[in-house]
Computed example of a mutant assay.
Amino acid sequence: MRILILSDIHGNLDALKTILDSERYDAVWFLGDLTDYGPEPHMVLDTLRDLRPEVWVMGNHDYANAHGVDCGCGEKTHDLSVYTRENITQKLLTKEDLEFLKSIPLYREIRMDARDFYFVHGCPADPLYGYMFDFMPECMRNEIGGMIHTDILLFGHTHFPVRGIKENVEYFNPGSVGQPRDGDPRASYGIYDGEFHLRRIKYPVDRVVRKLENLVERRDYLERLKSILLKGKV
């Protein structure tokens, strides 16, 4: 089986569709954050629901929209998050969409290929807000402080792809589909076919920029959003 691994789409339908049209896959795992920053969160949600991911976990931005709370995201982009949430995401998602977001779990565990897989957006100790740019043993705890034992850990949230093995745990972050921030503006995603593979693909970013120009009235915010998309970094 060939599994497509996606995370942090952030309303960028063009990046998502480019991946889906170019890649061969039998199933999908989604690690959270389909909303905010981008122009088409409603269409990203519809596309994901049509895909019926076998694994889907809650992202901090999706939780913020579903429950009307702050995203708890990084200081450098927090104001962009609030602005796009209030002026794009909340205007385009229906009440039914928000109820659906509320139903998404904070984490998932499955067993496959004789191995245990743990899926989360941030990190096990802090599923929504914990940043893990590389493996951090202190993050391998549950909400009551107990140790989490798994063979494979999949996570997102940082917008930086990473793959490694430490303390007998194989870990993988596919990076961000719609908001890469590692200096490479191409959409980032992963493939699992018994092994993990990081992938990058160029998509029509100019099309996303034009859509934002029609939605974002604040020129300073628009220029920052465009810069992130075009440069792949904050």
Rank of each mutant, 00 (worst) to 15 (best):
H78P: 07
T89N: 04
Q90E: 14
G59L: 07
C71F: 02
R85P: 02
C73E: 11
T77P: 01
N87P: 04
H61Q: 05
Y63F: 06
G59S: 05
M58A: 11
D62T: 09
T77W: 10
D70K: 14
V82S: 00
V82P: 00
N60D: 13
H61L: 09
D79L: 12
G74Q: 14
T84A: 01
V82D: 02
K91Y: 10
K95L: 10
D62I: 13
C71A: 07
V69A: 05
T84W: 02
G59Y: 10
H61A: 15
V69W: 05
K76W: 12
N65L: 11
H67F: 15
V82W: 01
Y83C: 01
D62P: 08
L80G: 05
K76Y: 13
Y63W: 15
S81N: 01
V57H: 10
I88G: 03
L92S: 00
N65D: 11
C73A: 06
E86K: 00
D70Y: 13
I88M: 04
A66P: 11
N65C: 14
A64C: 15
E96N: 02
T77I: 09
Q90C: 06
E86N: 00
V69C: 15
S81Y: 01
T94P: 10
V82F: 02
A64L: 10
I88N: 04
S81E: 04
A66G: 03
Q90M: 15
T94A: 03
S81W: 00
L93T: 06
D79F: 15
T84E: 00
D62L: 15
H67A: 11
G74V: 11
K95D: 14
L92T: 04
E96S: 09
D70F: 14
R85K: 12
E86Q: 00
C73S: 09
D62S: 12
K91N: 12
E86W: 00
G59V: 09
N60T: 13
C71M: 02
N65Q: 09
Q90G: 03
H67L: 07
D70P: 15
K95H: 06
L93N: 08
K95T: 04
G72N: 03
A64F: 08
G72E: 00
Q90I: 02
V82E: 02
G72L: 12
V82L: 08
G59P: 13
C73R: 06
S81M: 00
E96I: 08
N87Q: 01
